[in-house]
Nucleic acid binder design. Sequence first.
DNA 1: CTGAAAGCGCTTACAG
DNA 2: CTGAAAGCGCTTACAG
Lengths: 322, 322
Amino acid sequence: MKKRINIRDVAKAAGVSITTVSRALNGYSDVSEETRKKIKEVASTLNYMPNINARALGGISETTIGLLVSDLQPYDYSNMAIGMITGVYEACAEYGCEFILLATDVERQSKQNFLQLCRKKNIDGIVATGLRTNDIYYKDIIKGDIPSVLMDINTSGKNLCSVSIDNVKASDDAVKYLIESGHRHIGMINGEHVAGVSKERFLGYEKALKESNIDLKKEYIKYSDFNEQKAYEDVISLMKGNKEITALFCASDLMAIGAIKAVEELGLRIPEDISVIGFDDIPVSKYISGGLTTIRQDPYKMGHLAVVLYEFLKGCRGSSEH
Amino acid sequence: MKKRINIRDVAKAAGVSITTVSRALNGYSDVSEETRKKIKEVASTLNYMPNINARALGGISETTIGLLVSDLQPYDYSNMAIGMITGVYEACAEYGCEFILLATDVERQSKQNFLQLCRKKNIDGIVATGLRTNDIYYKDIIKGDIPSVLMDINTSGKNLCSVSIDNVKASDDAVKYLIESGHRHIGMINGEHVAGVSKERFLGYEKALKESNIDLKKEYIKYSDFNEQKAYEDVISLMKGNKEITALFCASDLMAIGAIKAVEELGLRIPEDISVIGFDDIPVSKYISGGLTTIRQDPYKMGHLAVVLYEFLKGCRGSSEH
DNA sequence: CTGAAAGCGCTTACAG
DNA sequence: CTGAAAGCGCTTACAG
């Protein structure tokens, strides 16, 4: 094992003490420019990089942000995971934070508690995506004091905030658009109950109907768990039982795709007989034959914003301490 | 700032020395079971987790594997990035390695050299995906001594190996399939020259033609850089200039989609007039109207395999040292 | 402007 | 089976 270049090697090569090397490289002003230049040259030549562990122990550590992704899947139709990863990663790069990916699921959550996970990985703050309100970690985050930004779960509190689009308004807009196009019987294919967004998207649907004096019919609503196949099945049964329906508002594109398949299989044409609106604007949606009307959601921007928010919170805490 | 629980707190609470706590928690055998049990209880109650930095400095550090992803994009049509990320992440979890995501591009490569990046992040081994042979980091990896597994670039050497499907065979198979279906005039839409796979996929194309005694025509081959739009344009010009072509072999699904669009725009039907074969089996491909024949590639498995390979290499090194 | 020394939280010979 | 002490590679008062 070749020994790695350390601060002592640099000090020796530059003919100064390690104290001076440390200060020169960390940009302290009380080092002569001549000395600093020399030290920087030597360090660069040796490809010296301070040992990050020693640095952290010594007192200088970068904020590290963990992106907690629920049920990370190798096939990511919704593009949510990679969008969030990219957004958080780039924002961390901008703010000089360390980025750590944390995949989680029910099993992992039961094996290691949230606080221990954060301590083990030395995490200062969390951005969580895909978390459900019945997750163990959800409660841990809410009750704990690790600063967290939750995606698509509307919460606030000490060290807590959330990021999501205005789901109520987006849904309201979508359903009003259908109503303005002449539809009166509009079904809704919603996600699972425990997803933060499901309730809000329902509220928007409800609002649009109410404001147009259309009665809400419970039997028009299905909870298809964001699952294409389940949406397909639910739409088959929904349409068979309610032939007057002329439009479907789906809370995700994947479910919209399942809905379209069902509608076509029932011999109905889109959009002549049935209008379908999706949600998310995932990559596949533009390839759906005939196209898919959908509500844009940008995971990259949301992830990026989450880190901005985190930094903002931190800044407030910082300044309130002075 | 609340002080974090450290080994001293645990030692005090358990009424032993920090030496004993360390040994108990690290599973050394020279600790009485009674003591160990007590210590574990206390540690668990306090949610104690050893400071990973101190641990590393002290001498126990986990292998950390960096996944180097070129040009990480928020919209990942090919599903390559998320597949690789998931595969490498899960394999790291299995082997008890640390996982670090490293996004790179030309600009970043020019700002920080590869060795410094690895030292800064304390990286023991690299899995690189999307790297091109004209990347700065490509040369650094080849010449350096950081153990690396390259995806889709055929190299070997000390501390080096690569993972890819057998591109020559896959392409050979695909083109032979077209030939067996009666096609004699087969165009190829290839990726960019500097991608490791492009040459191999061309070789498979060439092999299939040669073994079927069909002359290779240079004008039948386009390099569309894995870009949908460019493939679209290239196919338009290809087909206009060579109306005898009845099949297209595309080195990626995205390019196949561009090709299909071009073919349809030229008033030709698929598959009656023109057959199109893609490569990758990306998520969108199953939604292409009429379906898309494609060669399956599984980024998750490849990423997973990369880590297995890395561990294997490390094992060999380890044993040869004894 | 520079350096000797203490300390960060661990691990690990070493002594008992 | 257990503990005192040295050491990992840094940073940072402190003294000069």
